[in-house]
Design a protein around this nucleic acid. Structure first.
Lengths: 342, 342
DNA sequence: GTGAAAGCGCTAACAT
DNA sequence: ATGTTAGCGCTTTCAC
């Protein structure tokens, strides 16, 4: 082969240039929407781009611009657990929606074990993405450390458990849980149980802490028999509810720390022949399809997911534009959504 | 600035070279595990890489190699629907696991609407990924067309509905559904209903076709009253089951086309006071947490997900290595998993 | 407004 | 076994 005639599959900038009868620089300007181009030239280039079906080569571009226009959402989760969580789906949806208006693309990266975590660290360091949003942190997660030390702009979804200095966006989990518990207290419930999430995750811990604090503020002593835990999933909620019923059949309310667990708990209650909400009142966490499909629909604590995703992106973009931007953290309010009984 | 001293943040190949006292080429050889390097040089380079924390720049590398070592799993789904499907989680898990042994990385791309589909098409064309596995195809999906015409190596998960010539891997959905239905017939069930998936998806269509063909082979005429549909999700299954019970309270079995829908159907049956499996027998599709957590565990049709993901990757890598490799298609057997009643 | 030229950091012949 | 050299396709001064 002589010059660049190797693979006719992908047209290059100067093929467009010669077809349009201008220089590479001009084509580049048109492609990048520079104002310093005459309408005539612009039109000629556009036409050439069209005929050749030209698409700029990202590698070449980011080699010089040092940007990829890609941000990653990293899911650090051992099992496939996370995928079934509507919370996760909402985050993806929110980020996608915000990014749709820009020319950046969202990619999802899953790290199920240590090996994959390191692989993702390398991926980020190699400059494949401009920034990272990190989701679902267990206390033993290596990724925050790996990514933080790799100088990749980083925003966490959820406050880091180890007090590390990183930008993050979180919901007021403790406040929401406390509000839910107070709601049950105000109904006159006296034996209020809880199904917690994993206690090595900040959302699990904070929601449990909120439940306890509301109980204590009301002068109640939390009863260990009324506490059980799941993994935020439906099956876990079902099992936890069964155990609670075994240990404390006299319970009259449950604060459940996630929507799928609430759906599971509801099944267990029905299987045990308990009536909801008269006999046992249930409050879930997180507005989601399952809670809304219940009959009657569950009262839940709602997080402002749209606001949270917008904030994550805002914080991340700030750090991408300015590498030395200060660490910023945001905590979003949660609120109780009471649903009319059917 | 004079030469390349701009950002000391990212060391380059020749910084490593001069520190190690060798040429760039040698460093490149070491980094790429070429055997043609002396142990001495190799060690010197390794040390320099270590001190400088050198990581190769992916853009520069793929500019010359024309590879990115990245494959994308593209999820084409209007809602957040897909994420809650355990089938999807298993696919991700399987692909991740296979890729973990290689130096390729898996990225997930979500296309929720037309705009995002086009964006993903561009992303692929720009050379960000070496190949694409495309999941969850509705009949009106634009992505197969967009990607096929963009010359990106492509493998579909599921037979394309329009008969387009593309490589794909599919499960024998019709065969599995027929086996499930025959199983119910063999039990002496006479009023066998079905909850179908979306009928604009190949998995939905094929499973419904399998149900019908088994019925017809047994000399039964399918009764429209015994057919209802959901979106593969739990809530959809619950609602479909309620409708079926309204229309045909005498039904004595249901073949449900997905695991979450089966869980939903089970709830609806219990709410209606029907006993499972004595009163109404249930067969689900897809081994998944919900079906296994049922009491008694559901009999289900299992797809060989591990085998399927391995095949997808195999087909895709073949097309990546050799752009002119022929279109290949695989259909994997499914089989009935009978679970002992509790 | 437009073109010429210099690289971005890397790999891959080709010499040695 | 190692160094030299020539680009990969693009953006971006800097002249004109």
């Amino acid at each position: 082969m002589s010059s660049t005639a190797a693979r006719p599959g992908t047209p290059t900038l100067d093929q467009v240039a010669s077809l349009a009868g201008v220089s590479r620089a001009t084509v580049s300007r048109v492609v990048n929407d520079s104002p310093r181009v005459s309408p005539t030239a612009r039109e000629a280039v556009r036409a050439a781009v069209e005929t050749l079906r030209y698409v700029p080569n990202r590698a070449a571009r980011s080699l010089v611009t040092r940007r990829t226009d890609t941000v990653a959402l990293v899911l650090s989760e051992s099992g496939t657990q996370l995928f079934s969580d509507p919370f996760f789906a909402s985050i993806v949806q929110g980020l996608s929606a915000h990014l749709a208006d820009t020319d950046r693309t969202l990619v999802l990266l899953a790290a199920r074990d240590r090996r994959e975590q390191e692989k993702i660290g390398r991926y980020a360091r190699q400059g494949h993405v401009d920034g990272v949003i990190l989701l679902s942190l267990h206390s033993d997660d290596l990724l925050p450390g790996i990514l933080a030390s790799s100088r990749v702009p980083l925003v966490l979804s959820g406050r880091p458990l180890d007090g590390r200095e990183v930008s993050y966006v979180d919901a007021d989990n403790a406040g929401g849980a406390a509000a839910a518990t107070r709601h049950l207290l105000a109904q006159g419930r006296t034996r209020i149980a809880t199904i917690t999430g994993p206690l090595d995750m900040v959302a699990g811990l904070d929601r449990y802490a909120g439940y306890r604090s509301a109980l204590e503020a009301a002068g109640r002593t939390p009863d260990p028999d009324l506490v059980d835990g799941g993994d935020f999933g439906e099956v876990g909620g079902m099992r936890a509810m069964s155990r609670l019923l075994d240990r404390a059949p006299d319970l009259d309310a449950v604060f459940v720390a996630s929507d799928p667990m609430a759906a599971g708990a509801l099944q267990a209650l029905r299987t045990a022949g308990r009536r909801v909400p008269d006999d046992v009142a249930l409050v879930g966490f997180d507005d989601a399809p399952l809670a809304q499909a219940c009959d009657p629909p569950l009262t839940t604590v709602a997080q402002p997911l749209g606001e949270m995703t917008a904030l994550m992106l805002e914080l991340l973009l700030r750090r991408i534009e300015d590498a030395d931007a200060p660490v910023e953290t945001r905590v979003c309010a949660t609120h109780l959504v009471r649903r009319a009984s059917a």
